[in-house]
Design a binder for these strands. Structure first.
Lengths: 242, 242
DNA sequence: GATTATTCATTACTCCGACAAATCGAACTG
DNA sequence: CAGTTCGATTTGTCGGAGTAATGAATAATC
């Protein structure tokens, strides 16, 4: 039974259903109970329940048809990179293979973005990235302003690549990064200084050197992945006792 | 004013609003008129209108808040690879820069997929790809069965890469590119034999040679892009007379 | 005079109840 | 046995009413 904490009713039901589906509690192909029944069980109006379901339908998670009911679509129809979907995927204990897949995707896309940004960035963007990096160096990632600067750094990098399609992946990747760093923090990690590897990327982009930018970003991701792997292991192993 | 042709009311309004937003008629940052007003103008009930808007919200196109109203989000928040969004984007005349971005994205992701598939594919997948390629060679892309084989070839390749995230990404990009080939056909192109470049990819994956697979896929995409560029130019230039 | 607290109007949010339309499956008919 | 009809089930659509959040104008306070 979902609680109405934080958002409004629809938001709570939306999250409840989304997590139910993404975590696998509602298996692919299953048809969830009828609207009237479910709405009554959750003690909400049918209209509000329907709106929550329609939002899930917008993400490609479910499909509704008269008589047949609302059924969970196959995973290939899902938008796995949707920020909400990612949030639900990381809600419980994250699936290590999913995290691995995510990093593999990043290690393909992000170096390419850095490469493009190196040739296409304008001076203003470079300046903004430099400033963000300076804040990161000063405050560190433990403070909110430091994390904001980190986000700004990557957002600007994304803008600088000048490819709208890749840019639309930014929000997704950003969400993925946020959740992995969350686990790093929970696991007590988050010790390594993130500035040097970011600095290498910055230098390459400053110098408009695509090869160096791609290389530097690849290294950055490699380090990030090592940290996450370690954190994930620490996080999972002491608890998996069932 | 949208027509209720085909789908139901909500579907029609959903399409109407979606196209309005994606084609730019409703600019980014704009807040669309209030629910009551719009629902009345479109002669539909307010609940149905809200459901359509909520589906758009699920795709990240709009965001609703009390008092402020419903406003169109920035393009970076959109899910540009969503099938519906693509349909709307290609509804009018396709934006050449968008097509360029799409192919750039593809040239990053698909070679990586081919590389991964080369090492991770199992024998059954390789067999299926071989058979599909044989059908392509026999029937050509003009027949339905030939196009089905082409689709099966790429679908199997995606599965073989063994990364669910990249699989989902590849599928979306594939769907997007399919729209551009729609224009290829309209423009009367579709002349080049697609088998040799596919065969090179196939050989590399058969040999479990990641470097060769990546290279072969890069070449395939280069040729595809040349065809599309040419077709797109033929398609656009004779009509842009306003 | 600038800042803070308050009121107010606007907008989306939630609820209720009813009927319509589509569709699957079973009963029926040839 | 094949095809058709019919009925039950489920989502779809509608209208209306009241609630809650929020931004802005206004008043109070320092």
């Amino acid at each position: 039974m979902p609680k109405t904490s934080g958002r409004r009713v629809r938001g709570a039901i939306f999250d409840y259903l989304g997590e139910l589906i993404v975590t696998g509690s509602a298996g692919v192909g299953d048809t969830l109970p009828g609207e009237v029944e479910t709405a009554e069980r959750l003690d909400i109006s049918r209209g509000t329940y329907r709106e929550a379901v329609k939002m899930l339908a917008g993400k490609g998670l479910v499909e509704s048809r008269p008589k047949t009911g609302t059924r969970v679509l196959e995973r290939s129809r899902w938008n796995l990179l949707d920020p909400d979907v990612l949030r639900w995927a990381f809600a419980g204990r994250p699936d290590p293979s999913f995290v691995a897949d995510l990093f593999e995707m990043r290690s393909v896309v992000e170096p390419a973005i850095a490469r493009l940004a190196a040739t296409r960035r304008d001076d203003e963007q470079a300046q903004q990235m430099r400033e963000a990096l300076a804040v990161m160096a000063g405050k560190g990632l433990r403070s909110q302003s430091g994390r904001d600067a980190d986000r700004l750094f990557h957002e600007t990098l994304l803008k600088a690549c000048g490819n709208e399609v890749m840019q639309s992946l930014g929000a997704s990747i950003g969400a993925a990064v946020a959740y992995t760093t969350l686990f790093k923090k929970r696991a007590g990690g988050l010790s390594r200084d993130p500035v040097p590897d970011h600095q290498r990327v910055m230098d390459a982009i400053d110098a408009r050197d695509p090869d160096a930018a791609e290389q530097a970003m690849t290294e950055l991701l490699l380090l990030a992945r090592q940290d996450t792997d370690k954190a994930l292991q620490d996080f999972i192993s002491p608890q998996d006792r069932d």
